[in-house]
Amino acid sequence: MRPTIEWVVLPAAMVSAPCATHAVQYLSVAAAQQAMFPGATLTPADRRLTDAEHKAIETASGVRGRGRQRDLKLWRVEGGGWFIVDEVIGKHEFITYALGLNADGSVKHIEVMDYRENYGAQVRDEKWRNQFRGKSHGANLKLNDDIRNISGATLSCRHLTDGVKRLLATYEIVLKH
């Protein structure tokens, strides 16, 4: 019988094999619009924030906006509401997401559209065995093939939460009136 705990010593500094990208597209713009505002007509209303607006948004939200975030990818929803596509770059991830706002500016919906992360491969975990009892062998999988489901210490979604704060301030300052 195998023990219920297996101990593995990992090298603190592993040599990183060529990087693989974990990229998932969850929703296209059209699909995200349809998911948030089913059946509604959305009219593109892209605009570039002025210096003054950009600054006011940073002050109001307490979140710094990067240069490219001055170009708002924006749609006006028939009958009230907004649909905004934004992206955030955090420590480990590159994320495109959509924010749906109700007519009163409250959050209706947040959907992650694209998620990208770069990984190196493990190369020196010598005791590579497929550990968990009764599971078939997985070691021959190529890293590039399919990095879809990852477990590990929790990744924070703070960058996205900050992005939403910035967009809510954008609504107050630019879109509300």
Partner: peptide
């Protein structure tokens, strides 16, 4: 197919396992 993240070097993946009708937490 589930991949496990290296605890310190977050960009490295250490193990691959298969999971069926069960849960995993780290």
């Amino acid at each position: 197919i589930i991949r496990l993240r290296h605890p310190i070097q977050q960009r490295l993946l250490t193990r691959t396992l298969r999971l069926r009708d069960a849960a995993l937490a780290t």
